[in-house]
Design a protein around this nucleic acid. Structure first.
Lengths: 348, 348
DNA sequence: AAGAATCCAGCAAGCGCTTTCTATATATGC
DNA sequence: GCATATATAGAAAGCGCTTGCTGGATTCTT
C-alpha cells in the first residue's frame, strides 16, 4: 500500500490533523512538532494524495492552458511564457501548481471537452490561447462553459483571443486587424497594387481579423481587390506552398503575397523560388507573428511581431491573481511591423 | 452550490450509486433508468467532480508529458503526437484522459517537482521526452521517482531518451550517436577534414551522444580533432549564431560546421552568411532533427531526420497500454540522413 | 408451477484528506 | 495567586464519489 497521512501521523506520534497542518503551513505548529512530522514524511517517503486533498479542500492546483496546436511555436512560445508565470514547480513553495497544456488541435469538440475536463478537475485557472472558432453554436457553448468555470471560482484568461462578453473572462487580445492593415499598407507604400493574400482556416477570428485589416488597407488606398487574390488554407508551411502555386496560377501578375502567418509565408517563399521568382525583386512576401525562424529566412521575412512571450507572461500572472486585470477586463496587444528583406518595390 | 451526484440522483429518482454506474457505464443499468439519469444530468448541467472520483476509484485520468522546452518544435511535435494517442478528448468515450504537457525548461528540480506533482495526482501514465540530464545525483533521484511511479501503477514511457535501468520504464531511444556518426561521415565523404562542432548544453545525454557519434566518425577516418573545433551552447538559434562566430575566430580554415540541432544550424548559417561566407561553397552546414523549417532554409539544410511524430505516437500508445511495449522494454529509433543543399565539397 | 438463476437498484462503507470545534497547557494581567 | 488570554494539538465530521454486498422483482428451468 501507499503511505497515507495517517501513517505519517502514527510515525510522528501526532494526529493526522497536525500532519496536514504542517504540510500546508497554514496553521501554527510548534517547531519541534513540525520537525518530527517532517522527518516522518521524509522517512516514509510520503507523497500527498492530490485528489483527496483537492476533494477535502475543494480546490485544486491545476491550471489549464488550451492551445490550438502545440507543435506550432506560436502556441509553444505563449504556453511557455504562461507556464513560467504559473510558477509550476520553481515558484516559491506552497504555490506549487501544475500547469497543464492541452492541445485542441483546432477542433471545437476537443476544446469543449478539455474545458469540461478542467472543470471536472476544478482547475484553479484556465488560459485559452490563440484565435477562437467562429462557429456560432460552438462559440455559445464555449461562452457558457467559461461562465460556468468562472462561477465555480476558476479564473479564466484569454490570451491572443477576442473577448468573450458576459463570461467574466479577462482578455488580452491581439490587434490582428491593425497589424494586418499596417503590413499591407507598408506593401502599398512600396508601390504594390496587385497583392495576393493567403488566409488561414475559415471561421477563425484570427483569420478574419487579419484579412479584414488587409482589406481595410486596400480599400483605404482605393485598390479594388480581385476575388482571385485570396486563398484560404491552414496555418502551416505546406498550406502556404500550395496556396502560392494556386495564386500564381490564378494571376501571375501579382507582385506581393501576404501570408496569414510566418509559417505560411515561408511555404510561400519556397513556392515562389521554385517557380523561378526572386524575392523581393519579382514578388514581395510578408508574414505575421515574427516567430524566431523568420529572421533567418532568406531573405529575412517582413512581418508583424506579436509579443507572444510578454502577452503570455501577463496572462499567466493575471491567471494567478498576481497582476491586476486590465481595466474593463480587456486589453489590446499591438503588433509591431518588422520591415525586412522579403519586401521591396514591385517589379516593373 | 455546484450540482452533485446526489442532486442528479434525486432528480432522476434513483440512488447515487445508479447515477455513478450510468456515468461510468461499467455496470448493467436498465435502458429506461439510464435514460432518466442522463436526462437529469443534462437538465442539471452536472459535471463530475474529478478529485472525488479519483479518490474513490483510486485512479486518475491524468497523463503527464514532460518536455524540456515547449517552445521548441522538437518537443512540440512529440508532445502533439503523444497527446494524439492518449485520446485526450476525441478518443472514444470512456477513455477520456487529460493529457497534460509539463515544461521543465531543462531544469532538474522542475523535472523532479513535476514528477512528484504527477505522482501526487496519481497519474495514469507519464511520458518523458528528450534527453536526460547527466548529473549523477539528479539522475538517481529521477530513477527513484520513476520506480515509485511504476510501483504505484503509473505507466512510465521514455521517448527520445536513454533507458532508465531498473525503473520499469519503457524506452524509445533515439539513436543520436549513430545519427551523428552518419552525418559527419557524409561530410568526411565529401572531403571535409576540418569540421567545427557546435554541441548542446553539457551534461545532457543528447548532447553527449551526438558529439560522440561525430567523434567516432572523425576517429574512424583518422582525423585528429583540434579541441578548438568544439563549442558548447544551448539548443537554440542564437546559440548557434554566437558559437559559429567563436568557431570562425578560433579557426577560420574550417570547411564545415556541424550543429547540435537544426535551430542551432540555422543560427550558424546566419553567422556564416554575415561573415561573408557562402553555404556550402565556403562552408558546409549540417543540423539534426529535420524540423519542419529545415527544408525551407536557404540552402535547405542537410540533417538527420528523427521520426518525432511516429516515435511520439508509439510512446503514447504504449503509455495507454494500447501497444505492446518493445521486447526488453527498450527500442532504438534510428534517424535518417537527409542530404540537402547546405553540404557540399569543401573549398580549395 | 415451484425453485434456481438472472437483473437491476439501493445501502452503506469507505477513499485520504481538510477544517471546525473543542480541549489542554502555558502565558498574561491585576 | 486566580481568572483570562494565547498557543498548540486532537476528535470528528465531512468533501463527492465508487463499489461490494444485499435483496426484491423477473425470467428461466425442468
Amino acid at each position: 500500500m501507499t503511505v497515507t497521512l495517517a501513517d505519517v501521523a502514527a510515525r510522528a506520534q501526532v494526529s493526522p490533523a497536525t500532519v496536514s497542518r504542517v504540510l500546508n503551513g497554514n496553521y501554527p505548529v510548534a517547531a519541534t512538532t513540525r520537525e518530527r512530522v517532517l522527518r516522518a514524511v521524509d522517512e516514509l517517503d510520503y507523497v500527498l494524495n492530490g485528489p483527496a486533498s483537492a476533494l477535502a479542500a475543494a480546490t485544486s492546483d491545476l491550471v489549464g492552458i488550451l492551445v490550438n496546436d502545440i507543435a506550432d511555436p506560436f502556441f509553444g512560445i505563449m504556453a511557455s511564457a504562461i507556464q513560467g508565470e504559473i510558477g509550476g514547480p520553481g515558484g516559491r513553495a506552497g504555490g506549487e501548481r501544475l500547469a497543464v497544456v492541452c492541445n485542441t488541435g483546432g477542433s471545437p469538440e476537443r476544446e469543449l471537452t478539455y474545458l469540461t475536463l478542467l472543470q471536472r478537475q476544478r482547475a484553479a485557472a484556465v488560459v485559452l490561447t490563440g484565435g477562437a472558432m467562429e462557429n456560432a453554436p460552438h462559440a455559445a457553448a464555449v461562452a457558457a462553459k467559461l461562465r460556468k468555470l468562472g462561477e465555480a471560482g476558476t479564473r479564466v484568461v484569454l490570451c491572443g483571443r477576442p473577448p468573450a462578453p458576459d463570461t467574466g473572462a479577462f482578455a488580452l487580445t491581439f490587434d490582428n486587424r491593425g497589424g494586418g492593415r499596417e503590413l499591407t499598407e507598408h506593401l502599398i507604400g512600396l508601390g504594390h497594387r496587385r497583392l495576393g493574400y493567403i488566409a488561414g482556416p475559415e471561421e477563425r477570428t484570427t483569420t478574419r481579423h487579419r484579412l479584414e485589416g488587409h482589406r481595410e488597407a486596400l480599400a483605404a488606398h482605393g485598390i479594388v481587390e480581385d476575388p482571385r487574390w485570396t486563398v484560404h488554407g491552414r496555418y502551416d508551411r505546406r498550406s502556404g506552398y500550395e496556396a502560392t502555386l494556386e495564386l500564381l496560377r490564378r494571376d501571375p501578375s501579382l507582385t506581393a503575397v501576404v501570408a496569414a502567418n510566418d509559417s505560411v509565408a515561408v511555404g510561400a517563399s519556397a513556392a515562389l523560388r521554385e517557380s523561378g521568382l526572386r524575392i523581393p525583386d519579382d514578388v514581395s512576401v510578408a508574414g505575421f507573428d515574427d516567430l524566431p525562424f523568420s529572421v533567418d529566412a532568406v531573405p529575412s521575412l517582413t512581418t508583424v511581431r506579436l509579443p507572444l512571450s510578454e502577452a503570455g507572461a501577463r496572462a499567466g500572472r493575471i491567471a494567478m491573481g498576481r497582476e491586476e486585470p486590465p481595466p474593463g477586463g480587456i486589453a489590446t496587444v499591438r503588433g509591431e511591423l518588422m520591415v525586412r528583406g522579403s519586401s521591396g518595390v514591385p517589379r516593373k
